[in-house]
Design a protein around this nucleic acid. Structure first.
Lengths: 251, 251
DNA sequence: AGGAGCTTGTGAACGTGAGAACAAAATCGG
DNA sequence: CCGATTTTGTTCTCACGTTCACAAGCTCCT
C-alpha cells in the first residue's frame, strides 16, 4: 500500500490528485457524519460541528477537506449537501461498485444478509463458495454459486472488489484466483497475510487483532503492579499448552 | 486514544512501559506469525523470516521487538516459542479475558458462532439482546440473555471487554450502559462515533469504511481520465437521491 | 459604506513512524 | 584461540501526520 507519490520536499504532495492516505481513511467518516446531519435537516455546518459529529478535531478536518478543494465559505461554514456530494465523488461512491463475497460461512452469511449494502455505493453481485453443500442455498434474494464460476462472473459484471471470508487455509488461493480473474481490490477477513502483485490493493479486517490491542491497554489499566516486571525465563513446561493465541475470525 | 505518555524529546518514550501505538498494533500480527511458524515445527527464526511471515520489513520488526526487551540472539535469531510467550505476555493474552457481545443480529450471530474464540485468550461469557424474541435462543452452547441482565453479568464474570454489534440507533445507549456497568474496553461494529469517558478504550471496525477506502483507490486506477477534473457545481436536482452512502455493517 | 465578528484555509512547529545503515555480539570452522 | 560470518539491537535521518495559530475572506449590523 505504497500509494503516496512522494516527489520532492514540501507539504505532503498536495494538489494534483495526491491525497494523504490518513486523510483518505477519514473521508468516509466525514461522509457518514454529513449524511447524518443531512438527515436531521441541517443545511449548513461549521468545521467545528462536523468535527464533533465525526469524532475528530476541527483543525484536522479543515486540513483534510482542503486537500479536496475549497468547498466551504469563510464566516459561514460548509453546505452539507454540496460537501457531501463532493466527498462522495472524490471517494467514488457516486457510482456503484460490483462486489463478490467468497466464503459463505458465518461471517459471509452475515455480510450477505446485510441489507443496507445496495443503497450505499456497493452492489453484491455474487456469493461464492467451493463447498457443494452450500451452493444453491438462498440468502435473501441471492443464491450461493460455485466458486468455479468466479471468472465468468467477474467478467460479466465488471467486478473490481472482492471480499474474502473464507478460513485462513484457502484464503491465499482464493486471493490468487480473484487477482487472476481481474479483481484489483480485496477486503480480507481471513487471519492470514495475503500477498498480491503491485497494482492490487488489499485491506484487512481482523477481530482477533482488535481484541488483542484492547487487551494490551486493558492490562495496563488493571494490575499495573500485578504485572511482573520482566520474568526472564518463564517456566518452560507451561509453554506448550499456552492458549493458542494468534487465530482470527476466519469464518 | 491518547495513550503515548510524552514527557520529553528523544526516542518515542521508550522503556518504562511505553510502547508506541503503531508497534502495539503489530504485536498481534507477530504473535500470529510465530504461532504459524511454531505449528510448522520451526524452532528458531531470523528477523527476516519473521518479517516475511508477518508481512512487514525486517528493520521495523526488529525495532518493534526491541521495545519489549532483548529476546533474540545475535548471529542466530529468535527462539520461536520463547518469543511467542513474551509477546503473548506483553499483550496480555496469557490470561483469559471475559467478553460480552451485545446485539445478536447477523453479525452478532456470526461472532457468537465463531468457535476459535475460547482458545485464543478471550472467552465469551454472554450474548445479550434487548429483543424479547431473541432472548432464549440457543447459539452453539450459549443462550441469548436479556440486555437488562448486563450489570449482574459484568459484575459476576469480571467482564472488561464489550463488543457492540447493534444497529447504529441504540449503540450509544448500549455503550453508556456498558461503561456504567464497569466495562473499560469496547469494540464497536455499529456505524456511529461513540463517545466514552476518559479511561475507556474504544476501537471501531467498519465494513463500509473499508470498502469506501478501496473504492477511492479503485477509482484512481480505472478512469484516471474518465474522472471530471473539478465540476464546481453538480446538478442540484440529482443531489437529493444520491445513494445514501455513509452506512455500515451495523447488524 | 464601514467595521465587528465569525469561520475557513494554510503556513509553520512539533511529534511520531519508517527505513537505512552500522556497531555489537554470538556462532562456527580451522 | 582467532578470524570470518551471521544476525541482532540501535542510532540517525527522513517522511508523514497532527496541531497551533493566524491572515484572508465572508456576512451582518449600524
Amino acid at each position: 500500500m505504497t500509494r503516496a507519490s512522494s516527489r520532492r520536499p514540501g507539504p505532503p504532495t498536495r494538489t494534483e490528485r495526491g491525497i494523504p492516505e490518513a486523510t483518505v481513511a477519514r473521508l468516509p467518516v466525514y461522509l457518514r457524519a454529513l449524511t447524518a446531519l443531512s438527515d436531521s435537516g441541517i443545511a449548513t455546518a461549521s468545521s467545528e460541528d462536523l468535527a464533533t459529529a465525526a469524532g475528530v478535531n476541527s483543525a484536522k478536518l479543515r486540513k483534510d477537506l482542503s486537500y479536496l478543494g475549497s468547498y466551504g465559505t469563510r464566516g459561514v461554514g460548509y453546505d452539507v449537501e454540496y460537501l457531501r456530494y463532493q466527498i462522495a465523488r472524490e471517494i467514488g461512491v457516486t457510482q456503484d461498485w460490483a462486489v463478490v463475497i467468497v466464503g459463505i460461512g458465518n461471517l459471509g452469511h452475515a455480510l450477505a444478509n446485510y441489507s443496507g449494502f445496495g443503497t450505499r455505493g456497493f452492489r453484491i453481485v455474487a456469493l461464492l463458495d467451493a463447498d457443494p453443500n452450500l451452493v444453491g442455498e438462498r440468502i435473501g434474494d441471492m443464491e450461493v454459486r460455485d466458486f468455479a464460476q468466479l471468472e465468468e462472473i467477474v467478467e460479466a459484471d465488471r467486478v473490481s472488489i472482492g471480499v474474502i471470508t473464507t478460513p485462513a487455509g484457502p484464503a491465499q488461493e482464493v486471493c490468487d484466483r480473484l487477482v487472476a480473474a481481474g479483481v484489483t481490490s480485496i477486503l480480507n477477513f481471513a487471519p492470514v497475510v495475503l500477498s498480491v502483485p503491485d497494482g492490487v490493493d488489499i485491506r484487512k479486517v481482523d477481530l482477533s487483532i482488535e481484541l488483542q490491542i484492547l487487551a494490551y491497554h486493558e492490562q495496563r489499566k488493571s494490575g499495573e503492579a500485578a504485572l511482573p516486571q520482566v520474568p526472564e525465563l518463564p517456566a518452560m513446561n507451561g509453554m506448550t499448552d499456552l492458549p493458542s493465541v494468534g487465530g482470527g475470525v476466519g469464518a
